[in-house]
């Protein structure tokens, strides 16, 4: 399928996703369920990764600045800004694209090949909206919390590294992570997160929804969904950065 057809079909599907919902009460229920499946179930992995990356960033910065005249508190500042600007939004976004994206594409793809989507349509339900909209909304609502958690936990990871290795005085680190704090960086990260949330849910959903064939194709669509949402995340990163920070 060529690029423009693909693009067109994606927008047609999104048009159906965002048309008037059937019964608001049922959507609210679905959104809550998706927050649990897509959001709460990702808290663990986000915490684990963020702790480690926070620690590694801090140590790497420390060893790169070995015996230089640069004040030690700048290590805390560097770790903080790396987490805020890029890691807690984009890296977490990429990790979620893998975890959440494959989950969504294979769930919807399986529903397609087992005719569950046809069954919804036959009941007079807008299957695109019923299946996809709650996922998009759930991720856009909840992923900002994942990003905030990642920032916070990442800073703790850095602090643990400092304390456990004695690489620098903990007081320098703590001073550094508060020094010259730019609140706008958090806004910037959250804006990115919301855009990524849309990509991570809608793109794999598109691939799952259009599966034709059997289990093999479901697997392929899930891979495609993850790959393309990852690429789009990086593209969005570039664009938003140029728009917000330049």
């Amino acid at each position: 399928m060529n690029f423009f057809t693909l693009f067109g079909r994606y927008f047609i599907l999104m048009g159906r996703v965002f048309s008037r919902p059937e019964k608001t009460k049922i959507y609210v229920k679905q959104i809550i369920r998706e927050i649990e499946v897509l959001g709460l179930n990702s808290v663990g992995i986000v915490i684990i990764i963020s702790v480690f990356i926070g620690a590694v960033i801090t140590l790497q910065t420390r060893y790169n600045l070995e015996s230089s005249w640069i004040p030690l508190y700048l290590i805390g500042l560097t770790a903080r800004d790396t987490l805020l600007l890029e890691f807690s939004s984009t890296m977490v976004g990429l990790i979620l694209a893998g975890k959440v994206g494959s989950n969504i594409a294979s769930e919807i793809g399986t529903m397609r090949i087992t005719e569950q989507i046809d069954a919804l349509e036959m009941m007079g339900i807008n299957s695109a909206s019923y299946l996809i909209l709650p996922k998009i909304i759930a991720a856009m609502l909840f992923n900002p919390f994942l990003t905030l958690i990642s920032m916070f936990v990442g800073l703790i990871g850095g602090w643990l590294a400092v304390v456990l290795t004695g690489a620098l005085p903990s007081s320098d680190y703590i001073f550094g992570i508060q020094y010259l704090f730019v609140p706008f960086y958090v806004t910037y990260a959250l804006v990115k997160t919301v855009v990524y949330a849309f990509i991570i849910t809608s793109v794999p959903a598109f691939y799952g929804y259009n599966v034709q064939g059997g289990a093999l194709e479901v697997g392929r669509s899930s891979t495609r969904g993850v790959v393309y949402s990852s690429i789009l995340i990086l593209l969005a990163d570039l664009i938003i950065t140029q728009l917000m920070l330049a």
Partner: peptide
């Protein structure tokens, strides 16, 4: 379509719902 009932070749029950929820599904929707 709401006047049509359809039985698919592979049953097409919703995997994530129980038997009761499956049967009740059209009622819950409409």
């Amino acid at each position: 379509r709401r006047e049509i009932g359809m039985l698919f070749q592979g049953s097409a029950l919703f995997d994530s719902l129980t038997v009761e929820e499956n049967v009740m599904f059209p009622l819950n929707m409409f």
